[in-house]
Nucleic acid binder design. Structure first.
Length: 449
RNA sequence: CGGGGUAUAGCUCAGCCUGGUAGAGCACUGGUUUUGGGAACCAGGGGUCGAGUGUUCGAAUCACUCUGCCCCGACCA
């Protein structure tokens, strides 16, 4: 993409409404525009990141055996009356009437609807297990939206719903999502720690929040340091096999948020040199809830013995529109964002230091074409402006590698590569630059971990 | 939903206290000179001062009402 043809409205100054660094940087980098309290447009750069985040989520959901579909944003109140949640949900639910005065609502979640789909089509125990997911916009009329898209009213959510015959197989479904989540966040460069969460009236230990550590996180978290270095389940993990050992391995080490922490357990179970006490952001939540919806909504299958069985369900959420700022909270410096390659809006930026100069333009055009041919998703800063502004823009929007071409280096046939994350610079022959970028980028795409 | 702020140009803000023809920097447009870390100069364009009502000869400025947005708390992917 040539920057001169792109739409990248970067801001030099920080808009005053933004409090936390990810919100400030998303506004400054031209990723989002606020349209109302808790409601944002995703501008091209932000949308590109959001899509990369979604793609990783989809790949890992699919790998785990979940099946994608898409449900509408606007729902009928009828289903919610059936589950009893129409009255229970409160003012967070945006209620709407259509032209026939029918009660509608903008979905804050989809348990009712997915249960309706399930009961319509699934009749036999032979059709289980089943895990259906979608990525859709949701609306919760938060009393106080804040922190940009970290806590917006309208937000994107991946939610998966598992259906099983009994608690045992539902637990296996839970483990599959647990493992899928570990892989999903790792592929975004994040170290996400599963922490025991409040499992509500169902009880048991089948509710976990996935927390990433960031200085500006919204809640305090406590965990064993070993969790931060634990290798994630590899690409060839067999999701049809027994995943309980992985689950046990991860949950054997202490980890809890401030809501759930037990100081005595933390100090007794975790050696002093392994105690991590930090801030964290919740980026995912998985939950087993048994027959909470299948019972009132009559979602049953016929078992092998001919009897009707209420299915056991779980739901598994990840918020892509929250993950984007969460990644920024984890990866930034004073100059701007530092994207992990796997979610970076562009993998490299080609900086033409003297746009308009015949030789420099020609060299850059050639390199830009070579980057495309090498499969690198590159931005070409061909704008006619000073070098300082280009460097500042490249740093701000956080492109992992800057390939810098100017008349000075051109004379000696040299290019410069700046590593956004480390600040490291290397000078190399122009002829080797594209291959060097490719060698740097490809392993960091993390699509093969 | 309680408490507290705030609203003036695309952005960051000054002007308000003490009423008298709406400002700065950045951004934008044209030009000249520049060009390896947000350049310099010249010339321009752009605002019913959030909305309404009132006080006044006169309101961005004072009073009242409403709305938007932000922060703290309670709540949440």
């Amino acid at each position: 993409m040539r920057l001169s043809q792109y739409f990248l409205p970067v801001l030099k100054e920080t808009p005053k409404e933004a409090e936390i660094v990810s919100h400030q940087l998303m506004l400054r980098a031209g990723m989002i525009k606020q349209q109302a309290a808790g409601s944002y447009s995703w501008l091209p750069l932000g949308f590109k990141v959001l899509n990369k985040v979604q793609r990783i989520i989809e790949e890992e959901q699919n790998r785990s055996g979940a099946v994608q579909l898409l449900m509408p944003t606007i729902q009928s109140a009828d289903l919610w009356r059936e589950s009893g949640r129409y009255d229970a949900y409160g003012k967070e639910m945006l209620r709407i009437k259509d032209r026939h005065e029918r009660d509608m609502l903008y979905g804050p979640t989809n348990e009712e609807m997915i249960t309706d789909i399930f009961r319509t089509y699934v009749r036999s125990y032979k059709d289980l297990p089943l895990n259906l997911y979608h990525i859709q916009w949701k609306f919760r009329d938060e009393v106080r939206p804040r922190f940009g898209t970290m806590r917006s009213r309208e937000f994107l959510m991946k939610d998966a719903y598992s259906f099983d015959l009994d608690k045992e197989s539902a637990t296996a479904a839970y483990y599959r999502m647990f493992v899928a989540y570990l892989r999903t966040f790792a592929r975004m460069g994040l170290t996400a720690v599963p922490m025991q969460a409040d499992s509500g009236p169902i009880g048991g230990d089948l509710s976990h929040e996935f927390i990433i550590l960031a200085d500006t996180g919204e809640s305090a978290v406590f965990c064993n340091k070993d969790l931060l270095e634990k290798p994630i389940p590899p690409l060839d993990t067999d999701f049809r096999g027994d995943l309980e050992p992985i689950f046990r391995d991860w949950t054997s080490l202490y980890a809890a948020t401030e809501e759930m922490v037990d100081e005595d357990r933390f100090t007794s179970e975790v050696p002093e040199d392994k105690r991590v006490s930090a801030r964290g952001i919740e980026v995912g939540h998985i939950f087993y809830f048994g027959t909470k919806y299948s019972k009132p909504m009559k979602a049953t299958v016929t078992g092998a013995d001919g009897k009707e069985i209420e299915v056991h369900m779980g739901s598994y959420g990840i918020g892509p529109t929250r993950l984007v700022p969460a990644i920024i909270e984890a990866f930034h410096d004073d100059a701007g964002i530092i994207w992990p390659v796997s979610v970076a809006p562009f993998e490299a930026v080609l900086i033409n230091l003297k746009a308009g100069d015949e030789a420099t333009d020609a060299a850059c055009a050639e390199i830009y074409a070579a980057l495309a041919a090498a499969g690198i998703d590159a931005l070409y800063d061909d704008r006619d402006m000073g070098a300082g502004g280009k460097f500042a823009t490249a740093d701000l929007i956080g492109i992992p590698y800057q390939l810098i071409i100017g008349p000075r280096g051109l004379k000696s046939g040299e290019a410069e590569i700046k590593h956004r994350g480390t600040g490291e610079r290397e000078t190399l022959p122009i002829a080797d630059a594209v291959e060097r970028i490719r060698a740097l980028v490809v392993p960091q795409r993390l699509d093969a971990i």
